[in-house]
């Protein structure tokens, strides 16, 4: 397995079946050292189960994976010595202080105490919690606990850090705080594997990502590679009722136009920022009064829509939720 040495994570056809439900159905990917790699997918897509297998807590029913060069199936302890994990739900001792939680983690992982203490403070400072080090974690907010857990996961100086939905349930401010910390890890060259169902998060943080749905990877690449799968930008132009027909003719030169009613026309075309001023001046020349214009760039959500026919945000109460509950209960 030569490739296992060059990559932080190598997954080869990983599978996991819970009774009737196959939560992960043959997932293969490679993550290079120093990369931030994301798993983007809706709830119940198999993200947490995949993480569970990679961090050696869930036994794969098929396939194989290597983390930091070690087999998750045959050498789980060697894998555990080299990873940091931030679980989806908090995993702290809420009755103890941050510094106690840190030092316990160090001792359980065998970090020598002189190194542990120094690094614990350095990491608490990195996530902006050094002033709260002596407070019990039950007094922490969700965002603070998450930042604390990221800091704790780095105490062993791990080769690879796993973060399962690191910003789920956090308010926008706290999310930004967590993002900053992840960017800092990237800067320091830490390999990060993260799962998320927020497309903006995946877009902003990941060097590369895999879109996962129903236990399978349906697309993989850099965020811009994935977005280029979608035809182009979407432009919205609203005009006075009288001008609709004339504007439609004008827009048809650039691409396919749809009439959304109420004077709103929708055009899908490449390079909207260049196109929009041109359209406005053309319309003025023709005497059409434009009331409103805007455009959207393709998002990962559009990519997901293109690939699955569903939106990421749709969260129906179907069988996938059962799978998610199973995975959450276990992890």
């Amino acid at each position: 397995m030569s490739s296992a040495n060059e990559y932080a994570i190598v997954a080869l056809g990983l599978r996991k079946r819970f009774g009737e439900l196959e939560a992960v159905r043959g997932v293969s990917f490679k993550v290079r050292y120093g990369e931030v790699y994301g798993f983007l997918g809706p709830n119940g897509a198999g993200k947490s189960t995949t993480v569970g297998m990679l961090i050696t807590l869930i036994k794969p029913t098929g396939g194989e994976a290597f983390v930091a060069g070690y087999s998750v199936v045959r050498e789980p302890v060697e894998v555990r010595r080299r990873i940091g994990v931030v679980f989806q739900d908090p995993t702290v001792d809420r009755d103890l202080t941050a510094i106690h939680n840190m030092l316990l983690h160090a001792r359980i992982h065998g970090v020598p105490s002189r190194i542990a203490e120094e690094r614990a403070w350095e990491l608490l400072e990195m996530v902006g919690l050094e002033e709260h080090a002596y407070r019990p974690l039950r007094d922490y907010s969700g965002g603070m606990i998450r930042r604390f857990e990221i800091a704790r996961s780095l105490l062993t100086n791990p080769r690879v850090v796993f973060m399962d939905e690191p910003t789920i349930g956090l308010d926008p401010h706290a999310r930004t705080g967590v993002w900053d910390v992840i960017r800092e890890l990237k800067r320091r060259g830490v390999t990060v594997f993260l799962t998320t169902h927020y497309m903006d998060e995946a877009d902003k943080l990941c060097d590369r990502l895999a879109i996962i749905d129903h236990g399978r990877i349906i697309a993989e690449g850099t965020p811009s590679q994935l977005k280029s799968k979608v035809a182009g930008d979407t432009l919205y132009v609203r005009v006075e009722d009288g001008g609709v027909a004339r504007l439609k003719r004008l827009l048809a030169r650039y691409g396919e136009v749809k009439d959304a009613g109420n004077g709103l026309l929708v055009l899908v075309a490449n390079d909207a920022p260049r196109l929009l001023p041109e359209i406005i001046s053309e319309a003025q020349r023709e005497g059409v009064r434009i009331l409103e214009t805007r455009y959207t760039r393709p998002s990962l959500d559009d990519v997901f829509l293109l690939l699955t026919g569903r939106r990421l945000r749709d969260e129906g109460g179907d069988w996938r939720f059962w799978g998610r509950r199973v995975a959450r209960r276990l992890l």
Binding site: I55, I83, T91, H109
Partner: peptide, 13 residues
């Protein structure tokens, strides 16, 4: 319930 068990189980200890 509070997840600490996982923190311990994922350690190499």
């Amino acid at each position: 319930e509070f997840g600490y068990l996982k923190e311990v189980l994922v350690s190499p200890a």
